[in-house]
């Protein structure tokens, strides 16, 4: 029974995740068009709502080209690692409180593990392999440079990412994501308690997901397409999907850790039934994630790209000391019993 319930949860989460990823691509194209004073895709279906479907069909009908000099096996493996890791990270995110349905008390989280944060950090590290291996196996100079750049960038910002999470762990006293969310009841959101940690974490998330202003691995003017230059058809589509899935996951992690997760203020004072409170909380979670995704998209189309040496400088000389200072300051504040 337990297994059946988790299976249903997994299928629903994967369906929602993949559908939302497809529509975030459309949203991004429409927002980009609006920012650049264009119209954007609006022909396929009403307001272009069937565009993602058309894109998938087009990608399926394309020829799958593997360059002769490439390492075939690793070339095939890399996109699978990317998408597998991007989807699996979502397993530990609590997207709602408990809900009582059909006589079952269901926890709205796929896997309630006690090392939630470590699992997230481990999987984001695995994501580096997909990008690096694709760059190496293509045996193209552009791909290789993109892969090397992205591995150096991702591991540099992972330090700041890991260090900024430590402040939150000290406040909550646990690595469980549901405990961290429960500690942020009412307005005690971690963004208010950990403003510096929040900033370093968000900046590192941008670098980890290879989004502009940190999209050096695929900087078109210098590297053509970066690590996926030699990919075509749905294999290219998988990298594309993985990038957007990573964006959704990063937004969900930021929401969970800093923006109170599924906590919706004042919802308990409305006097609603338990089930409707749970549903409102899930919707509140989705709303926060949606706002963050919008933030990701607007940043991408309004800021220029960093130079590579600037990127490394920010990572090592600004983010790392800032995160360590934040950690020590948090320790002092907790000892003085201000939190």
């Amino acid at each position: 029974m337990e297994i059946l319930i988790s299976l249903i949860k997994i299928v629903i989460v994967l369906f929602v995740l993949l559908t939302s990823v497809a529509y975030i691509v459309l949203l991004e194209r429409r927002v980009a068009a609006a920012i650049q004073n264009r119209i954007g895709p609006n022909r396929v279906g009403w307001q272009g709502l069937l565009q993602p479907l058309a894109d998938v069909v087009k990608l399926v009908m394309k020829e799958d080209i593997v360059p002769r000099q490439a390492n075939k096996f690793i070339h095939d493996l890399a996109p699978i690692i990317s998408i597998g890791v991007a989807l699996a990270t979502f397993a530990v995110i609590p997207f709602g409180n408990r809900i009582a349905l059909f006589g079952h008390d269901i926890k709205l989280q796929i896997a309630d593990v006690n090392i939630g944060i470590l699992y997230i950090l481990a999987l984001t590290s695995l994501g580096v392999y997909g990008v690096t291996l694709s760059g190496w196996s293509s045996n193209s100079k552009y791909s290789l440079l993109g892969g090397m750049r992205s591995s150096a960038q991702m591991i540099s910002y992972e330090l700041a990412m890991g260090l900024s999470l430590i402040g939150v762990i000290m406040i909550a006293g646990s690595l469980r994501l549901d405990t961290i969310v429960e500690a942020q009841v009412a307005w005690r959101w971690n963004i208010l308690l950990q403003p510096i940690g929040f900033i370093t974490f968000v900046v590192s998330s941008f670098a980890e997901t290879n989004r502009l202003p940190f999209d050096l691995p695929e900087a078109e003017p210098e590297l053509v397409g970066g690590y996926h230059t030699e990919y075509s058809g749905l294999k290219f589509g998988l990298f594309f999907l993985a990038e957007y899935a990573n964006m959704v996951t990063a937004s969900a992690i930021i929401t969970t850790v800093y923006l109170g997760g599924w906590q919706v203020p004042f919802v308990h004072s409305l006097g609603l039934s338990d089930v409707s409170v749970s549903i409102i909380q899930v919707l509140g979670f989705c709303f926060k994630v949606g706002m963050l995704i919008m933030f990701f998209i607007i940043i991408r189309w309004t800021l220029p790209r960093f130079r590579y040496d600037q990127l490394m400088n920010i990572g090592w000389k600004v983010m790392l000391p800032l995160a360590i200072a934040n950690l020590l300051a948090t320790g002092l504040v907790i000892l003085l019993k201000w939190v």
Binding site: I83, G84, A111
Partner: peptide
């Protein structure tokens, strides 16, 4: 166990999609 299932689903999705353009293209 749910994490294992999730990873399995993710990898299967990746394999099926990357084979799809080999089959249909």
């Amino acid at each position: 166990i749910p994490i294992g299932i999730m990873i399995f689903f993710g990898v299967t999705f990746g394999v099926v999609m990357s084979k799809a353009s080999e089959w249909f293209g």
